[in-house]
């Protein structure tokens, strides 16, 4: 565990809290893409199925392979799952009337189908768990596309929404640094699937980061895209 990895995870965790805080404080999920949030629940569900493996080891008192890192990962995985499901739940119950569904027009099959096909072809091992993990990595990389499309459609984002997007995008950028660090310091460490997907994911945020920093530098509350 290095400083880049832990910072990335904390930034990711912060993104959930920012979004939940925004929704609770303003009683609105305006400007937030339900489709992107739904994809994140699918991403975490497919990726963290190994929680059952850890749970299985715990209830059989088989602690031999459970390390501090396992406990940390398990704790964070449960938090990420709970937070993403809670966000989707909020957007479909008490905040449904404020949801930007009419403008959230991205067709999810356009990312779901290619990610599923790629996961079946390019994976480290042809097992159900590994294919679902790979699918989640590919899907996460592009899951922000409905959110970016909604942002372009709207032309601007309020302060908390833009901080949220910065946290979500920034976390993967920090993971890129973490991978470089690990590659340099750990023997035999490589994971091309995560690296390429992580690079694509970060690149998709490129424009957004630019406008976010312009906003921060100019001291504006809202992020505005050029018309």
């Amino acid at each position: 565990m290095n400083i880049f990895r832990i910072s990335a995870d904390l930034l990711h965790l912060a993104s959930f809290f920012i979004l939940i805080f925004k929704m609770k404080a303003t009683k609105s999920c305006k400007g937030i893409s339900f489709k992107t949030q739904l994809m994140y629940t699918l991403v975490f569900t497919c990726r963290y199925l190994d929680l059952f493996h850890v749970l299985g080891m715990m209830i059989t008192f088989n602690f031999a392979h459970i390390t501090g890192l396992t406990l940390y990962n398990t704790f964070m995985k449960i938090l990420f799952l709970a937070a993403s499901y809670y966000i989707v739940y909020l957007m479909r119950t008490e905040l449904k009337s404020t949801s930007d569904d009419a403008r959230d027009t991205f067709v999810l099959w356009h990312i779901l189908a290619p990610c599923a096909v790629l996961a079946l072809i390019f994976n480290a091992q042809f097992t159900i768990l590994e294919i679902l993990w790979t699918f989640s990595i590919y899907l996460e990389a592009v899951a922000v596309m409905p959110q970016l499309m909604l942002l372009i459609e709207t032309g601007e984002a309020d302060s908390l929404s833009s901080h949220y997007m910065f946290a979500v995008g920034g976390y993967r950028a920090l993971y890129l640094v973490n991978w470089v660090y690990r590659y340099a310091t750990e023997p035999y460490y490589s994971n091309w699937i995560a690296w390429i997907a992580g690079f694509v994911q970060t690149a998709l945020f490129g424009d957004f980061f630019y406008y976010y920093f312009v906003k921060i530098m100019s001291g504006d509350a809202a992020l505005k895209l050029p018309t």
Partner: peptide
């Protein structure tokens, strides 16, 4: 050390 999970990152 063998990890409890398949992958050691989130």
């Amino acid at each position: 050390a063998k990890l409890a999970e398949g992958h050691d990152e989130l």
